[in-house]
């Protein structure tokens, strides 16, 4: 557990929880990123303003952090474009079909003590752990 960073994890996690609560208190919306983003993809629908604003804040965060000297490192991704595309498709399709992602089910849903979200979170955690076990160990990557 050499990489374990409990203090920054707790501070960051508390901020994510605070963001979800503030969005609910102020606009009455669930801070589920897959739901917020997918609402921007259809041409119809009028409630786009708050979605653009939230996603804008999300993208602005690392830019502002960079200005005060805490720039974000380039994310390390698999070298295979095919893996990146397949993963993106699965994340997009799966979050729509399952009605949420790590934030919507894992933090907001469980935060509202929803059984649906508890089940969804257990399922995506298990398939993700199995996927990593296969790709990192069974396939020797």
């Amino acid at each position: 557990m050499a990489n374990f960073t409990p203090v920054s994890a707790a501070i960051g996690g508390a901020l994510i929880g605070l963001s979800a609560v503030l969005l609910m208190l102020s606009t009455g919306r669930i801070a589920g990123i897959s739901g917020i983003f997918s609402g921007l993809l259809n041409l119809r629908g009028e409630d786009k303003g708050w979605r653009i604003s939230f996603v804008g804040g999300l993208i602005l965060a690392p830019i502002l952090a960079g200005l005060i000297g805490y720039g974000m490192a380039q994310p390390k991704l698999p070298s295979s474009w095919a893996v990146i595309v397949v993963a993106g498709l699965l994340v997009g399709f799966g979050t729509r079909l399952g009605g949420g992602c790590t934030s919507g089910h894992g933090i907001c849903g469980i935060g509202r003590l929803s059984l649906r979200s508890i089940v969804a979170t257990i399922v995506f955690m298990v398939t993700a752990v199995v996927t990593v076990a296969i790709t990192h160990h069974a396939l020797g990557g």
């Binding site: 991704l77 399709f93 996927t131």
Partner: peptide
């Protein structure tokens, strides 16, 4: 749909380590 969607999402998440927020 909930279970199969969450299952597919987990596979994609595990392949790259990215979910929608990050």
């Amino acid at each position: 749909p909930l279970v199969s969607g969450a299952g597919l999402f987990g596979i994609g998440w595990g392949l790259v380590g990215l979910c929608p927020g990050p």
